[in-house]
Design a protein around this nucleic acid. Sequence first.
DNA 1: CCGCTATACCTCGCCTGCGAGGTATGGTCC
DNA 2: GGACCATACCTCGCAGGCGAGGTATAGCGG
Lengths: 178, 178
Amino acid sequence: MVELAILGFLGERPLHGYELKRRVAHLTGHVRPIADGTLYPAIKRLEKAGWLSRRTEPGSRAAPRHVLSLTEAGRDELRRRLRDAGGVQISDENHWFTVLAFLRQLDDPAQQAAVLRRRRDFLREPSSFFYEGERPLAAEEFEDPFRQGILTIARATSRAEMRWLHATLKALDPQGPR
Amino acid sequence: MVELAILGFLGERPLHGYELKRRVAHLTGHVRPIADGTLYPAIKRLEKAGWLSRRTEPGSRAAPRHVLSLTEAGRDELRRRLRDAGGVQISDENHWFTVLAFLRQLDDPAQQAAVLRRRRDFLREPSSFFYEGERPLAAEEFEDPFRQGILTIARATSRAEMRWLHATLKALDPQGPR
DNA sequence: CCGCTATACCTCGCCTGCGAGGTATGGTCC
DNA sequence: GGACCATACCTCGCAGGCGAGGTATAGCGG
């Protein structure tokens, strides 16, 4: 997930590690700082794979900065990861948001739509949090206010996302598949 | 997170591993299967700590089952974890939902309210996904439909949760702190 | 009664991310 | 000009979770 975020942000413009850290932290919505021990090894991995290059600059008001930029191979990799997004990337909200944040860089609208459709199909699957044997329980059915909260919140999210997905899919391929 | 889920479900009733697996999978909302390699080692850890005990039963229509139940120490641990929920448990939606799912078992309403208040305070913190320098960008401000999606979905979720939090907090301690 | 399938449990190695530690440099304040 | 702080980068060990593999058992179809 961090790797995708790094590739994505660098796909927009070259950045040094520290600035990258700030942006990735904000990416999760409510600021959730990303640990140095996560960011820098990830940068190393990507660099080793030839997806980004660094150029050292004198620090503006501190230690020298390593300005990172995406190589051509890196841009290909970014597009590949966006196009092939699946599994956790589709089902986990944090991962999914990361994909969404950079999906614009996958410049073929048909491919963008395909990714959105995968998410839509995933959300469509009937789902519930709690069961009584086989039967799913609705929010109103149990007296536990906290579980009611879970269901109401999840429902609100799901609705908002579905509405947005439909509208965006329509805009992307007006007479596309399904 | 898995450990809390195990403690929580076993706090409701004794279960064997396989059934536990089913319930934990549903806990995330849209069925996200939990790997065996996650569940069973977690059970082992909890058992080793003395928080749950097992009793072997002949399998109903397959291999023998290990029915797990919470020990007294396990129940204490569950309550401790719920009461002290913080950090990732508050800030990450997946973790937070796990806490919520079992918060009822923390039987002191004042303590329940304290946990909810921590989440509320976290959600209150001003937050945004994308910045232009220092200034946060609103959904309407950029033309990227995917980032617009992120913001609109996040906003809908946040609103629904805030509404629920306020209502529930009021019900929990009508004249409580703040 | 043989093989298949579903149930049920377990282990191992890997990958990702975290936290705690460390280094270095430029600017500011006294 | 020395102390201090913010910036900037890095490493190490750890923990949680995953996936692929393996074992075993009960029931069912042919």
